[in-house]
């Protein structure tokens, strides 16, 4: 499996030790290895390239400066991933997270077909970026990063109800955004953010 661009990569303990000694060359090796993964995660959570760039920089800077705090009881990649998530959520909280769009409270139609199953990646990417920040971040953390509602709630400093409702609303909104696309114009929308 191609792990390029993901956090499913191991970092040799010797490399981590060199990083912890403050060796810039060791850090560059690690940076190059995780640059795409960190950038992609930042972009998915924040939805904006300029903010993602800032998140990438700040998270990596923290990784370098706090490398000595890494105790090795979890994989280094997981530690780095958490730094990126924290930094991205911090940016959202700083900049825009207070703008939590209110959705129609009606429940999603659970029997409706899942439009994402038929949508191409560019269309799904676009729809994802049209979600409000909090909803998109919760959706991504829950489905892709494997966070529980409790963990998401802690990250946001909110209740688990917040996490659950944001997830339900994001899923419903995603259905709405993808449904006409899937029916009318499948596989035609290009994207500039994916490589």
């Amino acid at each position: 499996m191609d792990t390029q661009g993901t956090f499913r990569q191991t970092v040799e303990p010797a490399l981590v030790r060199r990083l912890q000694r403050g060796e810039l060359a060791a850090f560059e090796t690690i940076y190059r290895r995780f640059e795409r993964a960190a950038w992609t995660l930042a972009l998915r959570l924040t939805g904006r390239a300029d903010v993602a760039q800032e998140v990438l920089q700040d998270a990596m800077l923290k990784a370098f400066e706090r490398a000595r705090q890494f105790r090795g009881d979890a994989p280094f990649a997981a530690w780095l991933r958490k730094l990126v998530v924290n930094e991205a959520l911090m940016q959202l909280r700083h900049d825009r997270l207070h703008v939590i769009e209110l959705f129609d409270e009606t429940h999603a139609d659970d029997d409706a077909p899942a439009p994402w199953a038929h949508a191409d990646s560019a269309t799904l990417d676009r729809a994802l970026n049209r979600l409000p920040d909090a909803a998109r971040a919760v959706l991504w953390l829950y489905h892709v990063e494997g966070y529980t509602h409790l963990e998401i709630a802690e990250q946001f400093g909110r209740s688990t109800s917040f996490s659950k409702s944001q997830l339900a609303r994001a899923t419903k909104r995603l259905r709405e955004l993808l449904a006409p696309q899937a029916e009318d114009t499948p596989c035609t929308i290009g994207s500039t953010t994916t490589a």
Binding site: A37, W39, A119
Partner: peptide, 20 residues
């Protein structure tokens, strides 16, 4: 599961410029 699979299948991105 299908949503999670669809989201995970999104390709990784590359930053527009080298931030190193």
């Amino acid at each position: 599961a299908s949503l999670a699979a669809a989201l995970r299948a999104l390709p990784a991105s590359t930053p527009a410029r080298d931030a190193w």
